[in-house]
Write a protein that binds this DNA or RNA. Structure first.
Length: 551
RNA sequence: GGCCCGGUGGUCAAGAGGCCUAAGACACCGCCCUUUCACGGCGGUAACACGAGUUCGAAUCUCGUCCGGGUCACCA
């Protein structure tokens, strides 16, 4: 046995398999030409956040478009940062947003597929097997430096103003002999396994990023850690092994990974793997007192996807919005295919933005409004109450007191309208938006519309109550307003008034504004006639009288 | 600081040397439609970061400057 062989046995004595074993265990996938295998590999260090959702969406739609496979893998190699319930939240969150998972973790517990296990902590042997092979081939070695040693070295490098890191002459154990290693091991010293990099900083690596195009960087020459002292791999090593063995073809990930791509490429090369294709996604940004910055889990509520649930955005609205960011041609497609499922959209990575998009709440609201406006009242009822049940118990009670009443309320300007009203953009808006339907939420407003004096308003409303009937249809309803108008100096027809503004105080339209204010406390509402018919006679009359007495 | 990536209206963006007098969407403003409020329709304000080059011709190619972002761990 040569030195390397001896070293491999010394360091990882329990590993008896060779890479061949795994190569055979996880054969190439039998997929049609052009099918892409993608994945999202979250680490359960927190809850599902926007960036992960976005990345998952891009991977998902790429697999769908190409007739490939999309799977999930849990990267739990950092046990210190792991959060209880993180897997459940992330996987469950993806499901809730309609990101279907073909393989891997399909819930907090369950995994399925032939390329598992899909959790890195359950794959330790596999990584160690490949690490052992690398040691055997002289491409990896043990490093016995402590955290203090490394910190000291770093400080020295900083003082000398040289590039920091474990490379070249600073790679202390790069040339360690078997005998030295053996002595350390026998003394019980912990060690990491580092790659013996074959790279040279003066040479360039070039790769073709499917989103950003050609990227050129110096080769990696860092002897970075591939196995931590607990035998668990670092992200870099796990990425290479897993994505090869799981037969991933395309990796879409945040662009903060670009700078470590040379490490990954070197790993693929040294391991003899065919490199995956990378697509580096620009982060979603946020405007923070004038400055653009990456959306942050800690500072920004909308970074946690939970935020959208709390606000009550329909999940499909969030996805629809994310699609507009992901693909510049998506909105055109949507206009041409207004009702088609977004999953039918042919995603092209070349149409993906290379610079980071600012998170645009106005745009999200608009997208969401359109989606909600397309729902019928029954659907709105079930979604709204489901939301309220979870996030606003008080409102839930109010809404479900008389379900039929609530449904009628939701049907106004929706079910029978040719063009449904674009009103609320999220369920959270509903409480305020529909407040006047419920006495407990109603807030009167005793102001007056333009062109209408308090005396006119009183005169009009007093007459109106006499004529009003809850059974009036839209025509009868307005005819009554028009009938009163001339009596108090207002034009019955808008046109009349416009033709002769001096001749009238205003028009019937202004008077309906008074009515609206009296009944709803608002200047803008959906169809007033519809609202009054839902409210019923008693409430309307009471509110009108109250208004007359208060102005 | 080194190394990367980026920079078209307030925001998202189309744009591959002449089709650019620079599309579209959101937001904002105005008008029209309308028996109320909306929906809708029409229109408007508003941009190629800067400077050199290459070229008959540059938003588009090259270089430099500036600005923004990312990264330099036994974290992912």
């Amino acid at each position: 046995m040569d030195e390397f062989e001896l070293l491999a046995e010394l360091l990882l004595p329990d590993i008896d398999k060779t890479p061949d074993y795994y190569e055979n265990l996880y054969p190439e996938r039998k997929l049609p030409e052009g099918a892409r295998v993608t994945r999202v590999a979250p680490s359960p260090t927190g809850y599902l956040h926007l960036g992960t959702l976005f990345t998952a969406l891009v991977n998902r739609i790429t697999a769908t478009t190409s007739g490939g496979v999309f799977y999930t893998r849990i990267e739990d190699t950092d046990k210190k940062r792991e959060v209880e319930g993180g897997i459940e939240d992330i996987i469950g969150g993806l499901e809730r947003f309609g990101i279907s998972i073909d393989e891997g973790f399909i819930s907090g517990e369950e995994q399925r597929g032939d390329y598992g296990p899909y959790k890195q902590s359950e794959r330790a042997e596999i990584y160690q097997c490949y690490a052992k092979e690398l040691i055997r081939r002289g491409l990896a070695y043990p490093c016995f430096c402590t955290a203090e040693d490394l910190a000291e070295m770093r400080e020295k490098q900083e003082n000398q103003k040289v590039r920091t890191g474990y490379h070249g002459e600073y790679a202390k154990h790069r040339n360690i002999t078997f005998a030295e290693a053996k002595a350390f091991i026998e003394a019980g010293r912990p060690f990491t396994v580092r790659l013996r990099s074959q790279g040279d900083e003066s040479r360039r690596v070039v790769f073709d990023d499917v989103i950003k195009g050609k990227i050129e960087m110096p080769e990696n020459d860092e002897d970075f850690v591939i196995l931590k002292s607990d035998g668990i791999p670092t992200y870099h090593f796990a990425h290479a092994i897993d994505d090869h063995l799981m037969r991933t073809t395309h990796v879409f990930r945040g662009d903060e990974w670009i700078s470590s791509a040379p490490k990954h490429l070197e790993l693929f090369r040294l391991l003899g793997f065919k490199p995956v294709k990378y697509g580096h996604i620009s982060p979603i940004m946020k405007l923070d007192s004038g400055a653009k910055r990456k959306i942050s889990k800690r500072k920004d509520p909308e970074a946690a996807v939970r935020f959208f649930a709390e606000e009550g955005y329909p999940t499909e609205a969030v996805i629809e919005y994310l699609m507009t960011i992901a693909a510049s041609d998506f909105e055109d497609w949507r206009r041409a295919n207004p009702t088609t499922d977004y999953k039918a959209f042919k995603f092209n990575t070349k149409k993906m933005s290379v610079s980071g998009a600012l998170f645009d709440n106005d745009k999200l609201n608009d997208v969401s409004k359109i989606i909600i406006s397309k729902m019928k009242s029954g659907e709105v009822y079930s979604k709204l109450t489901a939301w309220a049940n979870e996030f606003d118990g008080d409102f839930y009670t109010i809404l479900t007191q008389e379900p039929e009443y609530t449904k009628k309320m939701l049907a106004v300007d929706r079910d029978n309208a040719k063009n449904a009203r674009k009103d609320i953009s999220k369920w959270h808006d509903a409480r305020n938006y529909f407040a006047y339907y419920f006495d407990s939420l109603f807030v009167p407003d005793y102001s007056l519309p333009e062109r209408v004096t308090a005396d006119d308003a009183k005169a009009f409303l007093t007459e109106y109550i006499k004529a009003y009937s809850a059974e009036d249809d839209r025509q009868a309803w307005f005819d009554k307003i028009k009938a009163i108008a001339p009596e108090i100096g207002f034009a019955a027809e808008t046109k009349e008034y416009k033709a002769n503004p001096e001749g009238f105080k205003g028009s019937a339209g202004d008077l309906s504004g008074v009515l609206r204010l009296a009944v709803t406390g608002r200047a803008n509402t959906p169809d007033l006639c519809g609202i009054m018919s839902v409210l019923g006679r008693d409430k309307c009359v009471a509110r009108i009288n109250n208004y007359i007495n208060s102005i």
